[in-house]
Simulated scan of single mutants.
Amino acid sequence: LKLVRNMRAHSDPWFAEYLLRIGDGKEVTNRDGEVRLPDEICVSRTGKDTDLDTLIDNTFPSLDANTSGPDYITSRAILSTRNDSVDRINLKMISRFQGDEMVYHSFDCAVDDPHNYYPPEFLNTLTPNGLPPHVLKLKINCPVILLRNIDPANGLCNGTRLVVRGFQRNVIDAEIVLGQHAGKRIFLPRIPLCPSDDEICTI
């Protein structure tokens, strides 16, 4: 789960058509080329700490009553342009789900670092593109997205959307919620992850 600022994601057909008109350059603009967002997809911003809660309440109304339904979770999203905002929103969203929290930690190491110039304590503070955070907090019924191709033939590929159904120490029990494999229960083991060459951090 990466706020076009104060904008809610909609699954209604009119919203898809609206986005297509913008993409095709057919939506009405002002003299500066700016597009007015419809009031029904905007959430007022006050500058207070409660703005994020307001955005979540508008994007995920009645969350407690709908967490078990995969259609509810997968038909809406909060988008953001920055990873630090994503992490803050994810933590806030996880706290909204009922039940106990499961915390997974990564085991970070640097390749070709024989002198240990980059200790794990430092590596744990980094979140390169394509890698999950060092501390991953999950709850039952929360959505997750797969970041690697594990078993494409069975629906486990980069971008697959799932909902968490259970936990083990090194395994996540999840259900695929979109595509031809929707409804399939799978187990996600702890696996090694490494950013691709075009995603490598410069330290």
Rank of each mutant, 00 (worst) to 15 (best):
D198N: 10
L126R: 12
K137Q: 08
E34A: 12
I145W: 05
L55C: 07
R76A: 14
E101L: 15
S106N: 09
A153C: 11
D64F: 00
I41A: 02
R190G: 09
P61W: 05
F15D: 05
A174Q: 11
K137Y: 00
Q168N: 11
S106Y: 01
L19K: 08
R169C: 06
P61Q: 02
L131E: 03
R190T: 06
L63D: 03
P38G: 05
R45I: 13
P70Q: 05
L188N: 01
D113L: 09
I186Q: 07
R5H: 11
L19H: 01
T74C: 10
T59S: 11
Q180K: 12
A9K: 04
L131S: 05
L146C: 10
L193S: 04
A9F: 14
E175Q: 15
P114F: 02
D197Q: 11
E17M: 10
N6K: 07
L126W: 08
V163C: 15
C42I: 04
I176L: 06
P70A: 06
I94Y: 04
I150E: 03
G33L: 10
I140N: 08
R96F: 06
S62L: 02
R190P: 03
V111A: 14
E121H: 06
G47I: 11
V28E: 15
L20G: 04
R36D: 10
V171I: 15
L178F: 01
L55F: 09
A110E: 11
L123P: 07
D32Y: 14
T74L: 06
D197R: 13
Y72C: 03
P192N: 12
A77I: 08
T74A: 11
L37S: 12
L136A: 03
P132Y: 04
L123F: 04
I191R: 07
N6M: 08
D57W: 03
R21V: 02
I56C: 07
C194R: 13
D173A: 08
I78L: 13
R96A: 07
R82Q: 12
R8P: 09
R169M: 06
I41M: 10
F187L: 08
T50W: 08
Q168P: 00
L63Q: 03
N90D: 14
P143K: 05
D173T: 08
L19M: 13
S11I: 13
P13E: 14
K48W: 03
N129Q: 12
S106L: 12
E199W: 00
R82D: 08
D39I: 13
R76P: 08
A153G: 15
L19S: 02
V163R: 09
D53F: 10
R5Y: 10
S85L: 13
P143T: 05
S11C: 12
S95M: 12
R82Y: 03
A9P: 00
P132A: 11
H105D: 10
N149C: 07
R190A: 14
G33K: 06
N154L: 09
L20I: 13
R148L: 04
V111F: 12
L20T: 12
D39V: 14
T81W: 09
L146T: 04
R82P: 00
D24Q: 11
T50K: 13
I200Q: 08
